[in-house]
């Protein structure tokens, strides 16, 4: 894409001349880094790994109460919390049936772990749940089933 009149001569290189090169070099460096990093981390912006896998997953998620009971999160929850209302993105709203993991199972497990933690600490009216647990069954491109257990940190509201 060269050609056309140029603004800078070789003799005099303005601040703009250097600034343009700095911006372009920075963007190229960031972009290449993101593409490479996407092979080692989940949901990397600018990684451009489209339709990376056909993994599937399903999960049973329970509230572990202070008296040791394990209650399905679909059952009534103190404070009227509904999992599917507060956790929406990336197929996490309905974890109970087998369905595709949008950006691969690693990303889904990462999001689900974050969701357990977020919900555990954004339900102040719940004084009986000490933690949330998810038992995840997943298939990596048809291979499996594999199993993973994800656990939120303990809630201070219930421990008190």
């Amino acid at each position: 894409m060269d050609g056309g009149p140029t603004r800078s001569s070789g003799a005099h290189r303005s601040t703009r001349w250097w600034a343009r090169r700095f911006v372009i070099a920075s963007v190229v460096a960031v972009q290449i880094t993101a593409v490479v990093a996407a092979y080692g981390t989940t949901h990397t912006p600018l990684g451009w790994q489209m339709f990376p896998a056909s993994d599937e997953w399903e999960a049973e998620i329970v509230r572990v109460t202070v008296d040791g009971e394990r209650r399905d999160i679909r059952d009534p929850w103190p404070g009227g919390v509904q999992w599917s209302t507060v956790v929406r993105n990336h197929g996490l709203a309905d974890p109970f049936r087998r369905h595709p993991a949008t950006y691969g199972i690693e990303t889904t497990l990462d999001f689900l772990e974050g969701a357990l933690e977020w919900v555990a600490h954004h339900t102040p009216d719940d004084s009986e749940t000490i933690r949330l647990e998810a038992v995840v069954t997943y298939w990596e491109n048809g291979r499996g089933p594999h199993r993973a257990v994800l656990v939120s940190s303990d809630r201070e509201e219930a421990a008190r």
Binding site: M1, D2, G3, P5, T6
Partner: peptide, 11 residues
Amino acid sequence: AALSTSIDGEG
């Protein structure tokens, strides 16, 4: 050199 010229090109 060609790339450098492209960066300063107008169109």
